[in-house]
Design a protein around this nucleic acid. Sequence first.
DNA 1: GCATTGTATTAGAGCGCTCTAATGGTTTAT
DNA 2: ATAAACCATTAGAGCGCTCTAATACAATGC
Lengths: 362, 362
Amino acid sequence: MVYRPGRVLSNRAAVIGMNRPTMEDVAERAKVSRALVSLVMNDSPQVSDEKRRSVLQAARELGYRPNLIARILAQQRTHTIGVLVDDLRNPFFGEVVDGIEAEAADHGLRVLILNGHRDARREAEAVETFLQLRVEGMALVGARLDDSDTARVGLAGPCVMVASGAVHTGVDTVGTDDRRGAELAVEHLAALGHTRIVHLDGGTNVSAGERRSGYESGMRSAGLGDLVDIRPAGDDEADALEVIDELLADDDPPTALFAFNDLLAAGALNRLADAGMAVPGDVSLVGFDNTFISALRHLSLTTVNQPTLAMGRLVVATLLQRLSDGPSGPIRHTLQPELVVRSTTGPPRGGAILSPARPRPR
Amino acid sequence: MVYRPGRVLSNRAAVIGMNRPTMEDVAERAKVSRALVSLVMNDSPQVSDEKRRSVLQAARELGYRPNLIARILAQQRTHTIGVLVDDLRNPFFGEVVDGIEAEAADHGLRVLILNGHRDARREAEAVETFLQLRVEGMALVGARLDDSDTARVGLAGPCVMVASGAVHTGVDTVGTDDRRGAELAVEHLAALGHTRIVHLDGGTNVSAGERRSGYESGMRSAGLGDLVDIRPAGDDEADALEVIDELLADDDPPTALFAFNDLLAAGALNRLADAGMAVPGDVSLVGFDNTFISALRHLSLTTVNQPTLAMGRLVVATLLQRLSDGPSGPIRHTLQPELVVRSTTGPPRGGAILSPARPRPR
DNA sequence: GCATTGTATTAGAGCGCTCTAATGGTTTAT
DNA sequence: ATAAACCATTAGAGCGCTCTAATACAATGC
């Protein structure tokens, strides 16, 4: 039960947990074989009550704790899936992970989480760690791997990526229809009468491409194709600062902003407030993800909802399907987004809801 | 490189990564011994360039990837610390974990994260998993374990808890002085002239006790001991709803609230807004943690800052110290909190800053 | 009585790696 | 020339567990 002072820091077999009583020790104390101890530890029904009791007692007395590492090596199964999270500070990812863990628990799978820190290199390392740990499947939640890394992962084993649209064929995907979500946002703004709608682009984030092209197609459908205006921003609050400043300095500043995600939108809201701009009076703003942040009354951000919990569960379901079906064409699950209209969107100054202005060529 | 269709789902040796080329395979192909391959994989300097090259090539050709599980079992070292996070959706924890990972990386340690889901039972399970995985140390970030679980963990090996104040002597702690933080909040409100200051209590959260007693001592120091009023709430946004309703229905509603954390404060802000209460006009509000949420201009929540990054790094440093020193008296690191005054606090209606009202006995 | 079935237990190989000690080969010192 | 020292390489035990096949023993059938 207690870790042993003297041995700490000895070169080998030093640290916590290693160098503890083993099955052998328990077997010896209970005067049975190691195999029997193993059976007891695995709740085998074919053990007599008497032996079971004495084994359990011996285990308790010694403070025995099974060594998962040894067990995994012996049974060649980890019963574990690895979840790579792009950014632990973005609540959106936390919600997806909640879904993943719920479904994993239902199937007796352990979930190990590694943090990607919004950095492609570190994410590639994390993936490598999962692979070396022999997880049975991997979920990439928001990972921004480049194509070659993605390909490597896909080849290495079951891997589900949270993403939508065109992704490397080697990995399965579960995602919200980002393109459609972006279209919903633009349609909403266009219907309110906005024409000068700028997209704050998500940069290297996996979902950035789809949302960008959804924005573009939304603009075109609204007859605003000539006004497409995409500004590189990012996916974090801090990433909004520069772009907003730049936009406000514009000769013809936008009347509406469609931000890559809620965090970026929140950052934009901050900066707009600093600049004394009224939202939605002077400028309307739409986010993406419908995190709890957007629901805060004082932000009350219009945003696009993603069914995070369902996505998380579906990720694991997909992983399991892949595990049982073996390699084949990529599986693609696309869930539907929903526009959540709150208080950061309204008609443009002077614009009317019922008579949307015709696109002014710049 | 590719996982093998035929074997997937076979009972044994089935899944991703297991059943892959081993060191033996590489050795055979490179026509050297397994031991030599091991040396190459570990960058040993005592390998001739020629052999090294041929081993690396063989490994590449086979798509060899070292099996971390086997390696760990053999060297009896995991080089891994386990981090138990109470709630992945609370950005505060994400920030602490960032600090932990930064320091861990500096010392060549892997960080494995498990999610506690704000549930004592699940957290105890997670701890057990870490122990069975033989992590070299554990960091409990916000874990709400009961005393007996905490004791078990402490006995099992190096364990640092993010917490302050009286904690089981078996575990080391790193934390912000929660009590002092709470006092700062109360002092600030009292100085503004508030007397009817209610504390929204954090429930089972580890830090709840200290913040509660800090509130109490703060009230007493301000001569407001008779007005101490603690309401059970929680640590999540949603936990604020009921309490706020209850408080607003009070004959003598408070003019100031000190919430357990920012999330709870944000929830309170929501509910107050719903009820048409002005903040800080009708009621002042202070949070805790200084998460990025509190900094959003539209909330602009007065709160108590915790040096999250420093805490995270210190957690790992403490773990390493414990690892090298062996068991001894508990290590306690307490960092200083700071009050961050923003826009949710102001003088009470009719109250003056310069002449704080005398405490009215209820 | 002995073969048969069934149940509880155990021996022992094996999982993929690391690490110590031994080996063989070359160079240097004497 | 022989011993000593050094270097690259390898044999083989061991990490703590699981799992198959073998074994012991009791109960059953004829």
